[in-house]
Design a protein around this nucleic acid. Structure first.
Lengths: 340, 340
DNA sequence: TTGTATGCGTTATCAG
DNA sequence: CTGATAACGCATACAA
């Protein structure tokens, strides 16, 4: 065998082309190089089938061009969308994403962070439920939906505003007596503010409201009990519901229909997140839509930001309402009315 | 400042502990080491706050412990499930996953493969739609749903068997005249066999069938036209449909309902994939379920297999039927009948 | 502009 | 069982 079975390296190219290894490096990185050299190197690279090996560079520069994304899973469509858009934002900037699934397991959340510490990534974007996770300070970290401390930038939708918007929307849709249902974890995170916003909105509208909060562990059956308890002579006590997430809203709607409460005729339902069927089709329920693309963009911008003095400790992004199959059409208002 | 601001390395630990660097390496990797040394090193690691850096190892061993997963996106729930289970299978074996989204773009599919060549990953698991992609042979590649050549192992569900199963199931459900609808790409891949299996099954059952195949580019409106053209005096010409994917099946059901054809009363619909609402709840339509977990397991097992002579060029995994909201209950048979 | 030489942090070989 | 040292592939400061 005359050919070297090993993969060729820069040194091989340099030797074959009769130039210095530094010159090869410069050509590969697109730096200025004499025309003759440029040509010789390019040809030799082609001839030897040289493939650039990233690991040498990483070791040398201590830059992996990879960001770790820590998230419970991708089965939940909200997470899937987040992963999708964050990856897109990273790719635009020539970064790769390393996905770490925690399955809501605190041990795993911890392990993942240790992993990144071992220089497998340049930074972390995390959506975590660990209540007392102490984030590394020696590496850029951005948190989604969860505020840790002023030193860890947090990015979230305007959850308070979204809750408020839901209340006003229900009022506008003609509701008189509404309820809020959600699952709460022991952890206080940004989405917890949805309730506060909703209550605030209800008070502004002078609308009767009630809250039904269930802890993580409790069964969904409790929601059904609550609903049953509020049906008197076939009529549901509420004509509007604001549910903490679209996913829960979907389940609630199933329960309501099973109990012969019609949606949206008898009760209108608004969820939160803006999930669509298959990610790009109809909204599965009427919803307060999270600006996931913007959230992704801000997360990436922040985690890659060299100048960490300019990053905000909490960024909240505006949400909007989208009509789905669980609310009625709003009666057309007189266009002049809003101009008054 | 007396403390070194740099992150400590194995050399630092060795010096501080008064041992050789090789000893530190052995301790870190859990190899046998004299008890006294063990203790000295462990303490020093703790004291200096030494963190293992993976990149040195990668450069030295040429092993990244990372597998690249090439897939169109994660918005499609089928892909999201695949990503989920492949990641789980990799994690069990102490591997990381590097996600590469192609968005069905051939240029990107190519770029991703080049990327992996640069030693960012030890192997590739790919679900690609590029008709004439030539896969690298110097690195382990496993293809999902797409057979390239005998040298590239392919893993897929038993698509032919699934199509056949759908036909038999529709017959069993009382259908007389059925149709198959799907979107076909120019590419011949494993899922294309669903049609062949269905036709085969229909013939075995002696059941009338028709096929409606649409090319990628054509609008969904064509499906609606087809359906409209088959409604005579308010009655739909078919009482059973087998649709290429659950996602398309869902859309078809929407169209049918819009045209006042009741599902499953007037026509029963079976899709393919086994998608569930939010990944873990009800099936969105009755479906032939892909064994995604097994597919993931086989993919990972194959891509990591050292002995490449034992890998099969095509592995097909069994599917099963799951009842969703788009088929009727099968009339209970006399249990003795099947024993005859 | 190009060549040379050193070091990034680890593993592995070999001698002690 | 342990110590010393040479790679691994590349970038870069410095010398020419």
């Amino acid at each position: 065998m005359s050919s070297n079975p090993q993969k060729p390296t820069m040194a091989d190219v340099a030797r074959e082309a009769g130039v210095a290894i530094g010159t090869v490096s410069r050509v590969v990185n697109g730096e200025a190089v004499g025309e003759v050299y440029q040509k010789k190197v390019t040809e030799t690279i082609e001839r030897l089938g040289y493939k650039y090996n990233n690991m040498g560079r990483v070791l040398r520069t201590n830059q992996t061009n990879t960001i770790a994304m820590i998230i419970p899973n991708t089965l939940n469509p909200y997470f899937a969308m987040l992963v999708h858009h964050i990856n897109a934002a990273l790719e635009k900037r020539n970064y790769k994403m390393m996905l770490c699934f925690t399955e809501y397991d605190r041990q795993r959340e911890w392990d993942m962070i240790q992993m990144v510490r071992q220089k497998r990534a340049d930074g972390i974007i995390a959506l975590t439920y660990h209540p007392d996770l102490n984030m590394p300070t020696d590496i850029p970290v951005v948190s989604i939906d969860r505020f840790f401390s002023v030193s860890i930038p947090c990015v979230a939708a305007d959850n308070f505003g979204g809750g408020r918007m839901a209340a006003h929307k229900l009022k506008e849709l003609g509701c008189q007596k509404v309820a809020h249902m959600r699952i709460i974890s022991t952890l206080i995170n940004e989405p917890s503010k949805r309730k506060d916003g909703f209550i605030s909105g209800c008070m502004e509208c002078d609308m009767d409201y009630e809250c039904m909060l269930l802890h993580d562990g409790e069964a969904y059956a409790k929601f059904e009990e609550f609903i049953r308890a509020n049906i008197h002579e076939g009529r549901f006590a509420f004509d509007g519901l604001f549910i903490g997430t679209d996913s829960l809203a979907w389940r609630i709607v199933q329960i309501l229909r099973k109990l012969h409460i019609r949606v949206p005729q008898d009760v209108q339902v608004i969820g939160f997140d803006g999930l669509r069927m298959f990610g790009d089709q109809e909204y599965i329920v009427s919803s307060i839509v999270q600006p996931i693309e913007d959230i992704a963009e801000v997360c990436v911008e922040t985690v890659l930001s060299k100048d960490r003095s300019v990053v905000h400790s909490l960024t909240t992004l505006p949400v909007h309402y989208a009509k789905g199959p669980t609310t009625r059409d709003i009666a057309k208002e007189d266009p002049h009315a809003s101009m008054a």
